[in-house]
């Protein structure tokens, strides 16, 4: 592509390779959904095409919902890549353990507010791990990686979205998982209101109980 100089590869994920590049003298991120050789070619093409088209649409919708996301500059469905804004900041995954209790609580509240805004607007993120949250140098929180997202109003989908985040906290940030998730839910409640939050908390519990070998499911 013209005027595109790749500076360095930042991350190689399950979905895409993320690189930092220079494009018309501007620093940008290239999210390239490369062929996954382990997948059947037909399945691979379908997944990559669907997500490459779908993700920018959701990122744009998220902006309308008031959730900071990187701005999309270009979508290329021949090479299955997206060129988007580079956000200078830190991944929440690395940031959370370094913060003081109060700072962490504040950040989690903020995370909850953003997720609340998404859900209120009818969007599901689909992969709410702390790897997919960036706090920029001006203290603004961004959500990234909407490749598994969907437009959905169902309680079930919202419940799964939050359940995955809760389990992510437990597996990655076990030392403060419960407190942090509580803070997330108060931020969520602040946006979406208490009655709905009560419903969703019940839903999350229901989803947890559905899991395999959950002790609490034992008949009393």
């Amino acid at each position: 592509m013209d005027n595109l100089i790749i500076l360095k590869q930042l991350q190689k994920g399950a979905e895409a390779t993320i690189s930092l590049a220079n494009w018309y003298e501007k620093k940008v991120i290239i999210k390239s959904r490369k062929i996954k050789k382990y997948r059947h070619p037909q399945l691979d093409e379908r997944i990559r095409r669907f997500r490459t088209i779908h993700e920018p649409q959701l990122i744009y919708e998220a902006k309308k919902a008031g959730v900071p996301t990187p701005t999309i500059f270009l979508v290329d469905t021949t090479n299955m890549l997206i060129i988007m804004e580079f956000i200078q900041g830190k991944q929440v995954k690395y940031l959370l353990p370094l913060l003081s209790k109060t700072e962490r609580s504040k950040l989690c509240f903020k995370i909850g507010e953003l997720v609340g805004k998404l859900h209120f607007y009818g969007l599901i993120h689909g992969d709410l791990t702390t790897s997919n949250m960036i706090l920029d140098d001006y203290d603004k929180l961004f959500l990234i990686d909407f490749g598994l997202g969907e437009k959905q109003n169902e309680l079930e989908s919202r419940g799964v979205d939050l359940h995955l985040m809760k389990r992510g906290f437990q597996s990655t940030h076990n030392q403060f998982a419960n407190a942090s998730f509580r803070d997330v839910m108060s931020g969520y409640s602040n946006v979406i209101g208490e009655p709905f939050t009560t419903n969703i908390l019940e839903k999350i519990q229901e989803i947890e109980l559905r899991g395999r070998y959950v002790e609490e499911r034992k008949l009393k």
């Binding site: 399945l43 997944i47 689909g126 992969d127 709410l128 791990t129 598994l148 799964v160 995955l164 992510g168």
Partner: peptide, 8 residues
Amino acid sequence: PYIVKGMD
């Protein structure tokens, strides 16, 4: 159907 939700 190909169903992946996050890491589930």
